[in-house]
Amino acid sequence: METGSPHDTGTAATGRPAVADGDEPVWIALPPGLLRMRRLLLGVWLGLLTLATALVPGLLAGPVWAAFALLPLALLLWGWVLLERNWRSWRYAERADDLLISRGVLWREQTVVPYGRMQLVEVTSGPVERHFGLASVQLHTAAAATDATIPGLDPAEAERLRDRLTELGEARSAGL
């Protein structure tokens, strides 16, 4: 869906290569559930804030003061666009020997974790995530700096990924 993305930092939005670098990583994007959840949360909280900033000064000090509500409203619209771009930037690829995770719009980060280095694969799902049918997969290696999390996956996919990663990790286990 298009939400009228502005062109001020257009390079970032188009910088997502359709043809991945050189060899064959098959990138998998996140399902739309995560975007829906984040937008709903944003809408609820900022919507309430907009309402509050419109009503409280508007009723107490005069209708002109209700213009304060424009601030959270602008934030809401900006966040709406931002969330989609962030969601689009997340993707992962399972290659023969390692897992790739790529994310970020302005600050881009790409992580490569060889399967043999995985110490633990974790699937987590909070109450809100569960309500939206989402789960995240987190990989731990012996290095705490390894930041390999894939949020907002379908629970079935998360479990498939977990089982596959553990299996591959066992087959190629290398330790410290």
Binding site: R108, E109, A143
Partner: peptide, 22 residues
């Protein structure tokens, strides 16, 4: 254990990036 490539907006404009090895 893992390799990361990180690139901020200013670095991208200059065509450079950092590679972290954990």
């Amino acid at each position: 254990q893992s390799v990361r490539l990180v690139q901020g907006p200013w670095q991208r404009a200059r065509g450079v990036a950092d590679v972290h090895v954990d």
